[in-house]
Simulated assay, not measured.
Amino acid sequence: MSADPTPGGGAAISIKGVGKEYTTDAGPVRALTPTDLEIKPREFVVLLGPSGCGKTTLLRMLGGLIMPTEGTITIGDRLLYPEGDDRPSGEALGSLGFVFQQSTLMPWRKVWKNIALPLEGKGVGRKERRRRAEELAETMGLTDFLEHLPRALSGGMQQRVAIARALIHRPSILLMDEPFGALDAMTRDRMNSMLQQLWMDTGKTTVLVTHSISEAVFLADRVVLLSQRPGRIQDVVEIDFPRPRSLDIVKSPLFGEIVQHLRSQLGEI
């Protein structure tokens, strides 16, 4: 599957002064302080931080799921929220694929129909939906499971289906909210290796939220570390390990040094 072009000629995602404040019965709660960040086309960026630091809030704002209290988000050359509009731009949303913490598959639909679901709303015919689902199933190692229902799949396989569904409309940007957090350690390692290969093969700009420091260092070009709530960017760490990265890289001294640095920033040591 070839890489899709990223809209615009500059940043894939431009975040300028973006913050979020929630209204509660006890008064306003600031989840994210105004934040600036640019993400380059085909870059793999990981948002890392403690629980409640605003990383998922930021990712959901990037995905058009919640509206920022202030600031602007630009996807390629399109404002996600056009000036004066409280609904996200359909054109900007078309550049985005979103993978949630849970696979959120429809249990009564076969795997190929779950993958192809976003195309139904676009009026794509059944034959083309099936063809594109089969194409993605091959990429994700799901070819033998197209006729299965989700309950027949392991948690890792269900998340593969969810990733394929997020890619079916050929977005240039993939947003992922802790998609492997509920998996056991061995399955999570396999999924991280798969995700790295998918990213290398497709060239999708990818933004991943995680609590796992080692997962962040293994996958990222850059780790963006957020502080305790109200979240702010505390540190940005470049990860220069060559790709593809073997799982054995976690044993290297440099990997350990980066993990230790991030842990100290998080106050874990």
Results as ranks from 00 to 15, higher is better:
M1Y: 15
M1K: 11
D4T: 10
D4Y: 15
P5I: 12
P7A: 02
G9Y: 10
G10Y: 02
G10D: 11
A11T: 05
S14L: 02
K16P: 01
K16R: 14
K20G: 10
T23E: 07
T24I: 08
D25Y: 02
A26G: 12
P28F: 15
R30A: 10
T35I: 03
T35H: 12
L37C: 00
L37T: 00
V45C: 10
V46T: 13
V46Q: 05
S51W: 14
G52T: 09
G52R: 05
K55W: 03
L58F: 01
L58G: 02
L62Q: 00
I66E: 15
I66R: 07
M67L: 08
M67C: 09
E70D: 11
I75R: 00
D77F: 04
P82W: 01
P82I: 00
E83Y: 03
G84I: 02
P88N: 00
S89D: 14
G90F: 06
E91I: 08
S95F: 11
L96I: 04
G97T: 03
F98P: 00
V99I: 11
M106D: 08
M106P: 07
R109D: 14
K110N: 11
K110M: 12
K110Q: 14
V111I: 06
I115C: 10
I115H: 11
K127L: 13
R132L: 10
A133V: 06
A133P: 07
E134G: 08
L136W: 14
A137G: 13
A137P: 08
A137V: 12
A137S: 13
T139C: 05
M140H: 04
G141P: 02
L142F: 05
L142R: 02
T143G: 13
D144M: 06
L146W: 12
E147F: 13
P150H: 12
A152I: 04
L153R: 09
G156H: 10
G156W: 15
G156P: 06
Q158L: 03
V161A: 09
A162L: 05
I163E: 05
I163D: 04
H169W: 12
R170N: 09
P171S: 07
S172Y: 00
M176Y: 00
D177F: 15
E178N: 04
P179S: 11
F180Q: 00
D184K: 09
M191L: 14
M191N: 06
Q196D: 08
Q197A: 14
D201R: 10
D201F: 14
T202F: 15
T202A: 04
V207Y: 06
V209F: 05
S212W: 01
I213C: 02
I213R: 00
D221P: 08
L225A: 03
L225V: 12
L226E: 10
S227G: 06
S227Y: 07
Q228H: 14
P230D: 09
P230T: 12
I233Y: 10
D235M: 09
V237L: 15
V237Y: 15
E238C: 07
E238V: 00
I239V: 15
D240P: 09
R243Q: 12
L247T: 05
D248I: 08
V250T: 13
S252F: 09
P253I: 13
L254Q: 13
F255P: 12
G256D: 06
E257N: 10
V259Y: 03
H261N: 07
L266V: 13
G267Q: 15
